[in-house]
Design a protein around this nucleic acid. Structure first.
Lengths: 191, 191
DNA sequence: GAAACGAATTGACCATGGTCATGTTTTGCG
DNA sequence: CGCAAAACATGACCATGGTCAATTCGTTTC
């Protein structure tokens, strides 16, 4: 639960994480079962819950790691120069978070609390805020709003677009396009 | 699951709903257990799942009914004349949806799919769209955006404000104020 | 009203996340 | 070292949502 101090415990924890990662890679996040993890790691079930308050804590950690990897790429990307470009830039992250309903629900629950997912996403906010420039804004986007508020707006729109997408499987919803509409509407200066 | 055709089955279903409503009134949504409901209704567990695909389907129905009652009041209310007023107007609904984390998660999952909750919320969208006026907009709000897009924006901001609130219990977050900030920023013309 | 057939109901059973009293290993200390 | 305390691990057990083959009930047909 808290960081283990003995070498044995650190190894156990690492085994659990490795086992979980391997299962996720093979069968997806939603298919992971605690029993499966502990069996693969060669420990008892109780041990799992001695290391993670609940299943979600482990899953958050795994998802956050994936998000972080995508953000590493984003960070070196060029600042997009249009609403559409901005929406497209978020594409890989949207894809990760909507790859499974289970993942999206997890992220949604975790995105505004404390924890690794929230941390990862606040890193995204930082990148966006940077793109929107300093106190005086950065065209072509609106220049009258604090970048922080704009970043929060993007977050809200992204979450909604993704929510619509995962709530209507097979209905051909396009989160990227929906997102672009809202970003366009709210982050570009009205004419 | 589908509407029952025999009188007996209709009565069973009504009993289940009544039992559930009574439990919710007494102990809240999150505390409701299927076992408890079937015991109170005097039927077997399997009967519950013959009438409702899963627990959530029943809960959605109950929550939607509550939302609808609040909307009846909203519908007769005067159109708010400021962003702050608009946020305040949504207060009762926000309060209902954030009264329990369980409720919020349920609503969030259901809000963009098919079902009674989505239906109730689309009624809210209709009211909002009405307030934002016809094709040419209605001051003091922005007049350059389709009312539908504005209503969707409000929905996104409301969901995010509520999510932050339920994700940080006891932290004194104020969904109404957070909402007002975003509504102000995005729905009022920039100056 | 008896046969036949689908609707409705039953309850034992299952899957799975989570708990906890107990046992084992490691560490720090005299 | 010897030993007590803390950290760690165990697995039987529990809570709860959900399944399904078997059974009972209601309705239709002749």
């Amino acid at each position: 639960m808290t960081e283990p101090v003995q070498r044995r415990a650190r190894a156990t924890r690492a085994n659990l994480v490795a086992a979980a990662e391997s299962i996720v890679a093979r069968e997806g996040f939603g298919a992971l079962r605690v029993e499966q993890v502990v069996k693969a790691a060669g420990v008892a079930k109780g041990t799992f819950f001695a290391h993670f308050a609940d299943k979600d804590v482990l899953m958050e950690q795994l998802v956050a790691k994936r998000i972080s990897r995508l953000l590493d790429a984003l960070q070196t990307a060029r600042r997009p120069s249009s609403a559409k470009g901005l929406a497209a830039t978020l594409g890989p992250i949207v894809e990760l978070l909507t790859c499974e309903r289970y993942v999206f629900d997890l992220v949604q629950r975790a995105s505004l609390a404390d924890g690794p997912v929230a941390e990862a996403l606040s890193r995204l906010d930082l990148i966006l805020t940077g793109w929107f420039g300093g106190l005086f804004g950065a065209p072509p986007f609106r220049t009258d709003l604090p970048p922080k508020v704009m970043a929060e707006g993007i977050r809200a729109f992204t979450l909604m677009a993704m929510a619509r997408h995962v709530a209507n499987p097979g209905k051909g919803t396009n989160p990227g396009r929906a997102l672009a509409v809202h970003v366009e509407a709210f982050l570009m200066p009205p004419e």
